[in-house]
Computed example of a mutant assay.
Amino acid sequence: MKNKLKTEKSNVTTMMEFVLLGFSDIPSMQWLLFGIFLVIYLTILMCNSIIILITKIDPALQTPMYFFLSNFSFLEICYVTVTIPRMLMDLLSQRGNISLLACATQMFFVLTFGGSECLLLTVMAYDRYMAIFSPLHYTVVMSQKVCVQLVIASWVSAVPVVIWQTWQIFSLPFCGSNAINHFFCDLPPLLKLACGDTFVSEVILYGSAVVYIIIPFLLIVASYGKIISNILKLSSARGKAKAFSTCSSHLIVVILFYGTATITYLQPKPNESEGIGKLISLFYTVFTPTLNPIIYTLRNKDIMVALKKLLSHYNDSNT
């Protein structure tokens, strides 16, 4: 009995790395997936960088809404950079070995940027609410100082909770298999590998999900409920169309991001499917950030006008 306990203890303490299985179940498609994800990553970098650029240089876009949008675009770049380059490296080398420190670091940044995105989307909804319900006081309420404070709060508010959450997870003993059936270090698959008491970690997981997903989502829903009811009262069809076009892009992004994040972090543990969980994670960490700049540009006339002006200026300078 003592020898058995000693062996188990040795297995727990000597595990110094994990193996991210990623897409190893479809080895024939590794190079194809590498090419697809590389193109997606470069597209995300390029599209979001263009949004940041035009919102900085175009005078017509020097408003709180586009200030928040440029910060959201920068956050998206940070968010995908935490996961996609590592996934590309694993697809290229066909090895998914990752140290405990690297795994903890990746999880910390994924959760931090994810939580910041939830809060920033809520701030953007509040901005639209103030613009529609209090247009006369909008510039005073949403001053540059207030906007900067709201962005900083969105970026840093999640950090203390995520530090505690990361420490809690990696203080658990891991024994048995070190294979993570995922393409990045995320909470649900890591909890499956822990052989200690995971109750506290699960409580923190669900509690954090409520604070950073459910509450912000309910605030956004409440804001847009009032916004839509107010838009419907407008007598001008043109006014209704303009108000809806202003808000619809943000609402689509909210539904895409919160829908998949809720399924990932709030589904009951017994019902989790590793394959489906990986697919859902792929959607909100890769595909949604790819769609976001497209949604914001194609459905926003101001950005399209600014983009055309930028392209026109670029063409004139080259001729």
Results as ranks from 00 to 15, higher is better:
T7H: 15
T13Y: 08
T14N: 09
M16S: 12
L20A: 01
P27M: 04
F34D: 02
I36H: 04
L42Y: 02
T43Q: 07
N48S: 08
N48M: 04
L53E: 12
K56A: 13
A60C: 08
Q62R: 13
T63L: 12
F67K: 15
F68E: 13
F68T: 14
N71H: 14
S73F: 11
V80Q: 03
Q94N: 10
C103P: 06
M107I: 02
F108G: 08
E117G: 10
C118H: 06
L120W: 00
M124P: 03
D127G: 06
R128Y: 00
I132V: 12
L136K: 15
V141I: 15
S157T: 00
V159E: 07
W164C: 13
W164L: 14
Q168W: 13
S171E: 01
H182M: 14
L191E: 11
L193Q: 11
V200Y: 07
S201M: 07
S201R: 02
I204R: 08
S208H: 11
I213W: 06
I213Q: 10
I214Q: 01
I214D: 03
I215H: 00
I220Q: 06
I228M: 12
K233P: 08
K233H: 13
A237Q: 14
K242P: 05
C247L: 03
C247G: 05
Y258Q: 00
G259T: 05
T262S: 00
I263S: 06
T285E: 03
T290I: 12
P293F: 09
D302V: 06
L310K: 02
L311K: 00
S312C: 05
H313E: 09
